[in-house]
Design a protein around this nucleic acid. Structure first.
Lengths: 206, 206
DNA sequence: CTATGTGAATGGATTCACAGCC
DNA sequence: GGCTGTGAATCCATTCACATAG
């Protein structure tokens, strides 16, 4: 059931989830692929194709059951269970992400935040106890953390990533503009803020 | 020369730029598509194809001139001239982005930051004077701002986006999880932090 | 008659492979 | 010989179109 799902499909699944969540609050019972597609400005066939990876979830003639589909997607994406994460690098961006509420709604729980500065560890940042990065092995093991959000300065990115991998982290959301070199085992996603802005400005007005 | 450049190509161009910048500091004079590709863990043919959109930039037998190529890319991407931007929504994320240094290196200049809270405007945030969002038309006109970074709470996203468009903003980097509905004229890029984290966790260990 | 599910067709981006130039 | 530039081939995602089910 979960072999070879395209990344784009997974991303759209989450967008569907958000709309279904909203539609359910509005009291909607059923929705067609066409209505859902229109809300997202995509094609209805795209919605059906995406959902078809996970079985026959709709009813011909009437569409999809809003509640059942929302719960099915929540289950596919693992929104229905908690996933522990940590944030590494408590600068401006790391602190902002620690306070970001959007993660919580998807089942993520920030368990620990790390920095390398004596000024910061020991203290609370945005309500989280800040730990010494060198304590990471112990803390991620105690708390079953597999995912790290990396927001250290660029110069420290590669060395910190190695520490994370050694400590047992399996996936890194990398906010630094550095291409991390790690073993294939560790999954990396890059969020390159400056790149996004530059791409936008390149295509502006085109 | 700039018709139909794929978005992916533009993004890689920036990655090439960063490496070329670094290589130049190292004193490198020439580089082959293969060496550049290896640094980024992509195929050499990809590098050549990307660059070929912009003319014949290399020399057969010896590769690309590092300085010339870096400057060519800087020119293509507009890194060689300043682009004014504003940030709208001075919560945690907006404030962090105001302090983010990565934008500056690509020629972006944060000119103004906006909020809707009386507590904030009039005061300085991360060194920037914070203005009332309702002043935006005046300020973006005075300062030739075409690009806005949108970091307001989700509930305020759509209404704020409309204000931005009315004020003359041509491109929005949208950090809210809301699908903005604006005219086709306004270019929108979405950075969906929770979506990135969810996608990463879905594919973790696969 | 309505709307899904899905093979087939299309479209876009990546990779191959090689002719052409240094 | 080494490396670019680029059509052709391949791969992957999107869209079409229709047989099928409610």
């Amino acid at each position: 059931m979960r072999k070879g799902i395209p990344e784009k499909t997974v991303q759209r699944l989450l967008l569907y989830y958000r709309y279904l969540f909203f539609l359910l609050q509005q009291g909607a019972k059923n929705i067609s692929s066409k209505s859902l597609a229109d809300l997202l400005e995509i094609k209805d066939s795209q919605v059906r194709k995406d959902l078809s990876y996970f079985g026959q979830l709709g009813k011909r003639g009437s569409g999809y059951d809003v509640l059942a589909l929302r719960d099915k997607i929540a289950n596919i994406l693992g929104i229905d269970k908690e996933t522990n994460v940590c944030i590494v690098g408590m600068g401006n961006l790391g602190s902002a992400l620690a306070a970001y509420k959007g993660f919580l709604a998807l089942g993520f729980r920030i368990i620990a935040v790390f920095d390398n500065s004596k000024q910061k560890f020991g203290h609370k940042i945005k309500g989280y106890q800040c730990y010494d990065i060198n304590q990471i092995s112990k803390i991620i093991e105690e708390n079953d953390i597999k995912i790290a959000i990396l927001t250290v300065p660029a110069e420290a990115a590669q060395e910190t990533a190695i520490k994370l991998e050694k400590a047992g982290i399996k996936a890194i959301l990398n906010f630094t503009p550095v291409k991390l070199s790690l073993s294939k085992r560790t999954k990396i996603s890059n969020v390159d803020l400056a790149l996004e802005l530059k791409t936008l400005s390149f295509f502006m007005g085109k």
